[in-house]
Design a protein around this nucleic acid. Sequence first.
DNA 1: GTTCGTTGTATCCTGTCGGACATATCGCCG
DNA 2: CGGCGATATGTCCGACAGGATACAACGAAC
Lengths: 125, 125
Amino acid sequence: MADRDDIPPVRLKLRLVFGDRLTLGPGKADLLERIGALGSISAAGRAMGMSYRRAWSLVEEMNAAFGHAVVQSTRGGPQGGGAHLTPEGRQVLTLYRELEDRTAEAGADQIVALRGMLGDMPQGK
Amino acid sequence: MADRDDIPPVRLKLRLVFGDRLTLGPGKADLLERIGALGSISAAGRAMGMSYRRAWSLVEEMNAAFGHAVVQSTRGGPQGGGAHLTPEGRQVLTLYRELEDRTAEAGADQIVALRGMLGDMPQGK
DNA sequence: GTTCGTTGTATCCTGTCGGACATATCGCCG
DNA sequence: CGGCGATATGTCCGACAGGATACAACGAAC
């Protein structure tokens, strides 16, 4: 009674494309979230199995695109430095999560319908 | 009153991930639409600037994932062959478009808010 | 049975993304 | 003042998705 279709393997991923300025998807959102929680770009990257190089470049991209930086970082200091979300950064993350929630809800019917059209596999996994 | 922010360069792309069975995003949806309109995989691919190889592989992927084929193709014949959407294919396309419409509507507030947070560029492009 | 345009499939090639690695810099703290 | 840990940034390289190309099979029309 554990693994029925309680958790159908369906996920809706969103990707906002702001012209050629920026693309914002699950990757950057998760990164923001982890930076906020861990206080460090490198720690956030490690937690996501992502190289620091890449994590930093994503942050750079976002900071460049938004009016104000979403992540503020400091070098040196007690733990060698760190990074934290600015109010704008928290706002971006909040809006993205809200967007995920609302779209998932609004499209639930279609998602279920599409899922139902998938072929029945003996071992669906 | 023509080009204000009437058409802000913001687009919400959706990507449905059905576990490891299939991922369905704008590419496959557009491809389905063009196959339905043009009656040919190669013509649809050309219209999208996509190689036949790729177009065909996407169709193959979808046909394998759904219970019934979404695209049915024939070789030889009057025009050498062709392809058309099955009822299932039309249904998949319809559901995906509905999903796009509903999510865009449901997330309009967040999208506008995020767009408003972008930096003001002299040439926003 | 020749022609024709498409499907179906293999083989090769290349552009690109991101990881790995190498440094430099910074600023507390012992 | 030297070490530490994190940011900041450049260079090199391998993996791989997808384009280019080539070719066989097909089936109706003529």
